[in-house]
Design a protein around this nucleic acid. Structure first.
Lengths: 340, 340
DNA sequence: GCGATCTTCCAAAGCGCTTTGGGTTGCGCA
DNA sequence: TGCGCAACCCAAAGCGCTTTGGAAGATCGC
């Protein structure tokens, strides 16, 4: 069943039927009702391929996800981010086009996505400090929004959490508890959030005239195993840290495992603060993991990112939209005063 | 730049240029080379909307993901599944359309996806034992593939792991170690994999004339918190189990937390076997979580599911393709003989 | 009662591609 | 020389929708 057939069956022109379905005013309400009823009865839905060709709009937003490095994994927090974005898309009538590509194929993927017109805009996740994608997308002239920021966050739209303040706050919290040797188990090097978080950690030390021991800082893909191995190595040292600041609950779980294996107890012998993205399957509340954490919901971020991007698509002339979210520190059972 | 302009600039007809680009034989190799060079130089990519309208193929595969129940979360293992499927899609030139919908909106989503022609096939994840989607998709007459099975797995295509054998094997392993009170921390009720896994657990008991204590069985959305609360409740009992059989590494982490909180040690006081989907960020090898597990890579499953589905799309007349994967048991550090 | 103005509808022209159904051209062969 | 057959290329007709530029009929003011 297509528009022509539907129009014929109603004794109307395609024009009128199309207008009736799309809510244009040039059609009598009575006729509109007739059309809608017939469309429903015939289970008619306009062919979206034709619709998109005719309108020139793809009604689709692209997410290009490069598999990171050799591990070739998709960042697990993307899961919740996509869920949030997907909610907005469904509500606004957009489709989500998800493209999984190798590490170096991202630009090519964006290029074809744009030049063959299959998306109206793209959502960029996991930006590096110096991410070529930003300039590249600007040169392509397509609306895009970055979740996160680059080192120079001007001239394009983004939404990010205040990573520096967030980690400064967390570090201050541990310093206030008397910890002086605090390990930073960070995300992978190169990602801008990692840089900013380290900056927050350093700022907190600097404000108290404390030296930072660089050997207490490490960064990698945020797996459970990484948290475990990093913590194990650190805890074996003579001058082991008494506290850990961890960039995600996933490696934090690994840190806890390492702590437990050495017969130590979190919150008593070792303190841990982590960044909590409020992952749905790793709840960090009182019933859940119970880590002291600075937190910001990645799913909410996904929702909001999608909203902003759609706004940018609908109004191509609006300047860059930038939104910075504060995080909140919640005290769990994983922190306590520095043992003496 | 579109086909007409490209053709004009070359002094050729659209037909010839189109054929040259699409590899048809009716064009001289020399001309083809000229066309390809010009296309590359002009950075031309055929408009996919027009292409799809003309060919009638969407070159897109739909994944409709219903948020489960009140928790409204996307199953975290979908992440790796999508990664695998996405690899195949990229290789085969297909796009992935991801649609996140509320629990009851799945059918509607499929219906519009199909009737407006935006997908050539759909991949169904997380089937219930009696899943209305199967009959519904059959009635829509679109190629589809189910990852998993329903209670009656006939007449449609699917790929699944041998859940019954897998859990029977795991249960046997624990029984062999002398455990008799084995808790089953299963997935959510209603999902067919949960049913089959319980069946395997029961079969193993029945084969040894052992009674199953139904109070040792529970099922829920597979979060860390669920594993923790289920294990906590069980361990508080007088007749606490000495072993746990857990449907995913995520709740297994929660079980381990509960065990640790009670001052017990996994592999010595309490044994744990879990199903390991080989999640990329929760590696369960020797360096990783170290759980004894029956395992099957969900990412490989995603890859293969996509392949089969594309095969079904290209050859609509092939009968149902069904593939059953065996799992392998690997012994980690989380199991040991039943303490006496 | 009549031109002006809405209201309501329509025919037809795209959108940018694929594909059908020919046309040329050049070559081998009798 | 003339015929048949490849090889190569083209014009034009869709694919199913939106949208422009009217036209016909109803309504209104005076």
């Amino acid at each position: 069943m297509n528009l022509r057939e539907l129009a014929e069956s109603l004794g109307l022109s395609q024009t009128t039927v199309s207008r009736a379905l799309n809510g244009y005013p040039e059609v009598r309400e009575e006729t509109r009702a007739r059309v809608l009823a017939a469309a429903r009865a015939a289970n008619y839905a306009p062919n979206s391929r034709a619709q998109r060709l005719a309108t020139g709009r793809a009604m689709t937003i692209g997410h290009v996800i490069p598999l990171s490095g050799k591990t070739e994994m998709m960042n697990p927090i993307f899961n919740d981010f996509l869920t949030g974005a997907g909610e907005t898309y469904s509500r606004e009538g957009y489709d989500m086009l998800l493209k999984i590509v190798g590490d170096n194929e991202a630009e090519e993927a964006y290029r074809t996505l744009v030049s063959n017109g299959s998306v109206d805009g793209v959502l960029v996740q996991g930006p590096q400090s110096h991410d070529p994608r930003v300039a590249f997308l600007q040169s392509l002239g397509i609306p895009f929004l970055v979740h996160g920021r680059t080192a120079d966050p001007t001239g394009y739209s983004w939404l990010d959490v205040a990573n520096i303040r967030s980690f400064r706050r967390a570090t201050d919290f541990l310093l206030d508890l008397g910890h002086t040797r605090i390990a930073l188990v960070n995300g992978q090097d190169g990602f801008d959030f990692s840089r900013r978080r380290q900056r927050g950690y350093e700022d907190a030390h600097a404000a108290r005239d404390l030296e930072v021991d660089p050997s207490l800082i490490s960064g990698a893909v945020m797996t459970e195993g990484y948290g475990h191995s990093a913590a194990t190595a650190l805890l074996e040292r003579e001058d082991a840290p008494t506290a850990f600041l961890v960039s995600s609950v996933i490696p934090a779980i690994g840190v806890r495992r390492a702590v437990g294996e050495r017969g130590l107890k979190l919150g008593r012998d070792i303190s841990l603060v982590c960044f909590d993205d409020v992952l749905s399957y790793l709840t960090n509340d009182d019933q859940g993991l119970g880590f002291t954490a600075t937190r910001s919901s990645i799913r909410d971020a996904g929702r909001r990112c999608a909203e902003i991007l759609i706004e940018l698509i609908r109004n191509p002339d609006t300047g860059p939209i930038q939104e910075l979210w504060e995080t909140e520190l919640t005290v769990g059972r994983s922190t306590g005063p520095c043992p003496t």
